[in-house]
Simulated scan of single mutants.
Amino acid sequence: MKYLKNLLLGAGLVVTALMVSCTTGSKTQLTESGLNPTAFDTTINNKPVKLYTLKNANGMEVCITNFGGRVVSLCVPDKNGKPTDVVLGYDNIKQYADSVNSPSDYGSSVGRYANRINKGNLTVNGKNYQLPQNNFGHCLHGGPSGWMYQVYDAKQPNDSTLILTIVSPDGDNNFPGKVTATTTYTVLSNNTLDITFDATTDKETVVNMTNHSYFNLNGDPSKEGTNMVLYVNADNFTPADNTYMTTGEIKSVEGTPMDFRKAHAISETINDTTYDQIKNATGYDHNWCLNTYKDGKGDDTKVCASLYSPITGILLEMYTNEPGVQVYTGNFQGTGIACKHGIKYPKHVSVCLESQKYPDSPNKKDWPSPYLKPGEKYHSHVAYKFSIK
């Protein structure tokens, strides 16, 4: 309850929350992060939606809704043992489902193709497909009705595992092939959120799945998070134009604000608008080419990126078998929309660390391939490990 009091805004909200959480009998108990699970109980597209809670014995709690496979909250202890929710989001399903008044990809399991495809142009097996152009003229995150706005079938075999499955029909947002995809969330005993993405298809297509959690490790998402210290194990990145589309180049980070090989506070470089990549994105929204990926294989036993809060002492270490990570610093936050616990998130409040194939890989033939054929299995792995530094 101490954590809840610190987050809820206004005495009236605090009193209401206390009444709910302290009532016994048939009343629903709040989660450690202060969520009311009943606020997620609904039916969308004739499928049941609810909030699932995963836990371990070391103070980690992850709440996930099967609408979009979204991580709604992620609670870990800070340096004083205080439970701290380190991801952004909403506290009810109504806002998640309202793509007009509260659009978001908060915490989602993104598919069929995460990030952007140039002008929505896709060629598969010699045939051209025109995809939706839902972001600066490009196809973003699988189109306007991508998997983040679909209901996954959910199974929770134990307290620490959630298995989400989606069947994407041939022609879904004009992508070819019927794809069956699974996202498996597991909370490990060492305070790691382990995520695997698996998929098969009946026709050649492209698949690029990721998790889109917005991390703020400071414990107060009402303030910007540029004090957080970022590390990215990458010698190179893929520059983008002013529509956020990769140019096809791979450039060295040496001597640029893109160099996070030595960890430093994001605030040290994020405002360097003399550098065109920072100016175009008003921050960071770029793909880094990970050093942990070599000869067509990613080493998910090595840290590929990390994020640290000097306020809470929470350290996040990221591991993946993918070739790239998209680092996004919440440049489009600051909309004034009231989010979880009524908080209005400011610009640069958070950092997304999205494991992925490079953006627009279908149109860059020399980049790691996103193509999936019948009989093949797509498998992607990312893990976010939390500890105290």
Results as ranks from 00 to 15, higher is better:
Y345P: 10
K279T: 03
M245R: 08
L230H: 05
D235N: 15
L315I: 01
F332Q: 13
K251H: 06
E317W: 05
P239A: 05
P346A: 10
E322C: 10
M318A: 13
I314F: 13
D259R: 00
K262W: 00
T273R: 11
G313C: 07
Y358S: 06
D241Q: 09
I337V: 12
D272T: 08
E224C: 05
A234D: 10
N227Y: 08
F237I: 04
A338G: 09
V303T: 15
I270N: 05
V303Q: 10
L230D: 04
A240K: 14
S252L: 04
Y275E: 09
K251V: 02
T247P: 11
Y319A: 07
Y275P: 12
S252R: 13
F332R: 09
V325Q: 05
V303C: 12
I250P: 03
G248D: 13
K251M: 12
P323Q: 13
I314W: 11
K262Q: 12
N271C: 01
P257K: 08
A305N: 10
Y308S: 03
G313V: 08
I270R: 04
A265V: 01
V303R: 07
E224M: 03
G283E: 10
G324Q: 09
T292N: 13
L307T: 09
S350K: 02
K294Q: 15
T329S: 13
K357G: 07
I266A: 08
C289Q: 07
V232C: 02
E249Q: 14
I250G: 11
